[in-house]
Design a protein around this nucleic acid. Structure first.
Length: 247
DNA sequence: TATAATGTTTGAAC
DNA sequence: AGTTCAAACATTAT
C-alpha cells in the first residue's frame, strides 16, 4: 500500500481519538497487553507508516503488500494480526482489526513524525528533495522509492511520476537537470494527490494510470518497455521515445 | 489455475 | 565487517 492509502486510513481512524482500549487479541507477537486500558491520543502517518499513539506507547502499522484493516466487520474464519476493542463514549464498542500488517510498539518519545519528507504532507520540503536527487548516484527509479527521501511513494506512483515528467527510469539521479528534477518532484506530489482523491471517492485507480500495467504509450502510441529496474528490481513501465535518459 | 504483485524486515551467505 | 540477496509474510487480481 502506498502513501495515499495510508493517509486515507489515518483519516478514517481519527474519530477513535479519545477512546480507550479495553480488550486486545490477535496472533501478532508484539506485547499487546501494553495497549490495554490506554487512551488513543492521536492517529498519525508518515509516508507508508501509520501510528496509533497512546499514552506512553505507540503502535506502528505497516501494510506492506497485503495489509488491511476492518472495523466491526472481521474477515470470516481468519485470525486477525491484531484486534483492538475500543469503548467509544460508553456506546457500543468499536472493534478495530488489522490483517497481514507488520506491527511494532515504539516509545512515543522516540517517535519521528517529521513529515518534511512525506510527499502528501503540507510540510513536504521540495528543495531538500531536489538536493537529495542531485547528490545521489543511484538510478532515479531507486531514489524515488527511497522512503527516507520520498516517503509514501511506491512502485505505482514512481512509474507514473517518471512518465509525467518524461524521465527514463534508468537515468542517473544526479545527472538530471535541475528544472527536470523539480518537475519530477512536482509530478510525484501531483500524482500522489490524484491517487488519494481517487481513493477517497472509491474510484478505480486503473483509470488514471498512464503507464503502470499498460501496453502502449498514451503520448506516441508506441509499445511500452517493461523492465525490472535498479537495485530494487521493481517492475517498471516506460516509453523509450517519450522518456529521456540522463547519464 | 497459476502467477505475480500498491513492500519491508530479517538473517544467511558471500 | 559490509554488502547482497532470498525468504518470509499470506492476499487478491488477472
Amino acid at each position: 500500500m502506498e502513501g495515499p492509502g495510508v493517509q486515507l486510513i489515518k483519516e478514517k481512524l481519527s474519530y477513535l481519538k479519545g477512546s480507550f482500549v479495553f480488550e486486545v487479541s490477535g496472533n501478532s507477537k508484539i506485547d499487546k497487553e501494553k495497549l490495554l486500558g490506554k487512551e488513543l491520543l492521536s492517529v498519525d502517518s508518515v509516508g507508508k507508516q501509520l501510528f496509533l499513539i497512546f499514552e506512553g506507547v505507540a503502535l506502528r502499522v505497516h501494510f506492506g503488500m497485503y495489509g488491511s484493516f476492518r472495523i466491526n466487520n472481521p474477515k470470516p474464519d481468519k485470525v486477525p494480526r491484531l484486534l483492538l476493542r475500543f469503548n467509544k463514549d460508553g456506546k457500543r464498542p468499536v472493534d478495530l482489526y488489522f490483517y497481514n500488517t507488520s506491527l511494532r510498539l515504539v516509545d512515543p518519545r522516540e517517535l519521528n513524525l517529521d513529515n518534511s519528507v512525506d510527499v502528501l504532507s503540507e510540510n513536504f520540503d521540495r528543495e531538500k528533495a531536489l538536493e537529495k536527487i542531485k547528490s545521489d548516484e543511484r538510478v532515479i527509479s531507486d531514489v524515488l522509492l527511497d522512503q527516507e527521501i520520498f516517503a509514501g511513494i511506491g512502485n505505482i506512483i514512481k512509474n507514473e511520476a517518471l512518465f509525467l515528467a518524461k524521465v527514463h527510469p534508468e537515468s542517473i539521479s544526479s545527472k538530471i537537470p535541475d528544472d527536470v528534477a523539480r518537475d519530477l518532484i512536482d509530478k510525484s506530489v501531483y500524482f500522489s494527490q490524484v491517487f488519494l482523491e481517487h481513493r477517497k471517492k472509491g474510484w478505480p485507480l486503473k483509470k488514471v494510470l498512464l503507464v503502470y500495467n499498460r501496453k502502449f504509450c498514451p503520448l506516441c502510441d508506441s509499445k511500452l518497455k517493461v523492465r525490472y529496474v535498479g537495485k530494487s528490481r521493481r517492475k517498471t513501465f516506460f516509453c523509450e521515445k517519450c522518456q529521456r535518459l540522463y547519464l
